[in-house]
Computed example of a mutant assay.
Amino acid sequence: MCAFEITPDVRRRVSSLTGFLLDMDGTLYLGDTLLPGALEFLTQLQTRGIPFIYLTNNSSQDAEAYARKLKRLGLSATCDQVLTSGAATSSWLRARYPRARLFVLGTPSLQAEFAEAGFLLVDEAPDLVVLGFDKTLTYDRLARACTFIREGVPWIATHPDINCPVPGGFIPDAGAIAAAIIASTGREPMVTIGKPNPYIFQEAVARLGTPVATTAMVGDRLYTDIAGARAAGLVAILVLSGETTPEDLKDAADRPDLVFPSVRELAQVLATCPPPRTSHGGGGGR
């Protein structure tokens, strides 16, 4: 029996949703472990023909790698169903700085993503410094990036997340590295592309083709998933399976529209809802 109370208001609000943007780390899985209810939730969306896109701020891997991981964990996924902050940053740069020379603090996967998009990756005289979630970061490259930035080279970050949830706790994310750069150089990034920036939500909703007002963002972070969803006009759904705790929620400035212990309870609510009357074109879940 479900311990989560499914009220008529919760059922009504969930049944009105026509599309979903889904965070991954801390929402659907932790590390290489699928979180309880993730498979049931995705099954509910697919059975009902509700489109969805996996939307992650984690820029350490590309869409292909995430799709492989999701499939390995037993979830349906194609590359077109995954939008990372790295891909959104590449898109933003192509529209404003095509063929720019980039010094990238990022994993080999992120660097390859920028190179494939037509950017020249350099170690000297860059036009821009780009910071991602760099699990391969060395002190030498961090120091070099700070030198470029002090000399006036503008810099951008793929996303602001301070920590990345992993089994047993957290590890420093791009936001923690950005804080070190800011402390050393005194310069803020020109822009941070990932959640909560409206840009990445607009890219995701455009892929789905669903109305903004009936599209939900499901995630575990208040300052990225929830703040960004609210600013973009989406329905903000918080799950308490990752970074945010019930204590964090008490004094939060960014209030979610709905809160669930995990996606398991969200799946349970969906199972009680009538089938949607219409289906919308666009991204995942097809």
Rank of each mutant, 00 (worst) to 15 (best):
L75P: 02
G283N: 01
D220W: 04
P167G: 01
Q81I: 05
A213M: 03
T245F: 10
V153Q: 05
G209N: 04
N163D: 15
V122N: 04
T215K: 03
S279E: 07
R286K: 10
G132Q: 07
Y139P: 06
P261R: 15
S85T: 12
I50D: 00
T245M: 10
R144V: 08
V122P: 00
V104D: 01
L137H: 10
S109C: 07
P246T: 07
F260M: 08
A183K: 07
F133G: 00
L42S: 05
L55M: 11
D62G: 13
P167S: 06
I226D: 00
I177C: 04
E40T: 14
L240W: 04
N197S: 15
A216P: 09
V10A: 03
G281K: 07
C146H: 05
T7Y: 10
G285R: 01
G209K: 04
L131R: 04
V130N: 01
V191K: 01
H159V: 06
D251V: 13
V212W: 14
D225T: 10
T215I: 09
A95Y: 09
A65P: 02
D80R: 11
S76G: 02
V104I: 15
W155N: 00
P261M: 12
L110K: 03
I156K: 06
E265Q: 14
R94N: 05
F170I: 03
L34T: 09
G219M: 13
A204S: 11
P172T: 07
L105F: 11
V259F: 02
F103T: 00
L120D: 07
T18E: 14
L42P: 00
A174E: 01
G194S: 08
N197Y: 03
T107H: 05
L17T: 07
R221T: 15
L35A: 09
T84I: 12
W92V: 04
G169Q: 11
A178Y: 04
A112D: 12
P275S: 08
P98Y: 14
P246S: 10
A213C: 07
F41E: 02
P211H: 12
G19T: 06
A77P: 02
G285M: 06
F20D: 00
S16W: 00
A115Y: 07
P196L: 06
L121A: 06
G31L: 15
H159N: 15
R99S: 12
R13T: 12
E40Y: 06
C273I: 10
L234N: 02
A77Q: 03
V269N: 00
D225P: 02
S76M: 08
T147F: 06
Q268V: 08
I200C: 02
T210N: 03
I50P: 02
G26W: 00
K250S: 12
F119I: 08
R255Q: 13
R12T: 13
P36H: 07
T43H: 11
I182V: 15
T210Q: 09
T147K: 07
L42A: 09
D32V: 08
D251M: 10
L222D: 00
N57C: 13
D220Q: 05
V104C: 13
G209I: 01
L30Y: 10
T43V: 09
A38G: 11
L270P: 05
L110F: 06
G37M: 08
P246L: 05
E124R: 13
P198E: 01
A183M: 11
A145P: 13
